[in-house]
């Protein structure tokens, strides 16, 4: 189903607000979803997954001060954090220069949304950062910088410790890939092409997921009353002139 960027942004933002998410977080989610869908990465379904699980199936995030910097942790150790808050939090740490040299790791329910948040932060700050996430069953490293994000999968050797599928790790310096090789999924050129195409043609989004978002967005609306109907433009004894 085709949506303009503005429409999708508005629907996602309202859906999040309809689910009780604070407005600023809802805006960040809408930005992330638009970013993902402009790259054909089904941000809409990510938003549905994330909003469905929040708050009951996700953990709050807390910040711990350590020698190396600020460390993000989930309040419940065996429960992933919601990407609603994890994405902005990682972006904020990146901006505040509070990411430890060893990186910042967190278990997150929808890692792709964190990727979007980090990539957009790098774009806004003109900084470079690397993010490891799991994508389609593989470990992927995103190299995020201004106006671009290059995504590559890693061919793992057996000796590499398997990460949890929900874990994301943010680094400020390029991670040592050791015997791993990076296969490009999304090049710099493809990134620019996708964004241009979005502006020219709009976005093709998953219809079923969009319907769910629209249903949540409708929760922000107020049923009209006689009094409210009387106060709209054109209202009065004579609706015509």
């Amino acid at each position: 189903m085709r949506q303009s960027l503005g429409e999708l942004y508005s629907t996602v933002r309202k859906a999040a607000v309809g689910r009780g998410v604070p407005h600023g977080i809802a805006e960040d989610l809408a930005d992330a979803v638009c970013w993902l869908d402009s790259l054909s990465l089904d941000g809409v379904s990510c938003a549905v997954d994330c909003l469905s699980q929040w708050p009951s199936n996700t953990s709050a995030i807390q910040l711990q001060h350590s020698e190396s910097g600020l460390v993000l942790e989930t309040a419940k150790p065996d429960t992933a954090a919601s990407a609603l808050f994890a994405g902005p939090a990682l972006g904020d740490l990146l901006q505040a220069g509070a990411v430890p040299d060893t990186g910042s790791s967190l278990s997150v329910d929808v890692p792709l949304l964190v990727l979007a948040a980090v990539a957009q932060t790098c774009d806004r700050l003109n900084r470079r950062a690397w993010l490891m996430i799991h994508l389609q069953g593989q470990i992927a490293i995103a190299d995020c910088s201004q106006e671009t994000c290059q995504l590559g999968t890693v061919s793992q050797q057996k000796s590499v410790t398997a990460h949890k599928a929900s874990e994301v790790t943010l680094w400020l310096s390029q991670p040592d890939q050791g015997r791993r090789t990076l296969n490009c999924l999304l090049s710099k050129e493809e990134f620019s092409r996708c964004r241009s195409r979005t502006l020219a043609e709009g976005l093709k989004v998953c219809g079923r997921s969009l319907k769910q978002l629209e249903a949540w967005a409708a929760l922000t609306l107020v049923a009209e009353s006689d009094r409210s109907r009387e106060s709209g433009a054109g209202a009065g004894l004579l609706d015509n002139d």
């Binding site: 604070p22 407005h23 960040d28 910040l63 600020l70 808050f85 902005p88 939090a89």
Partner: peptide, 16 residues
């Protein structure tokens, strides 16, 4: 830092 503040008070993210 506001990074810490907003983790505790996410409701202020928009106005900040």
């Amino acid at each position: 830092s506001l990074a810490e503040f907003l983790l505790t008070y996410p409701q202020h993210r928009q106005i900040v």
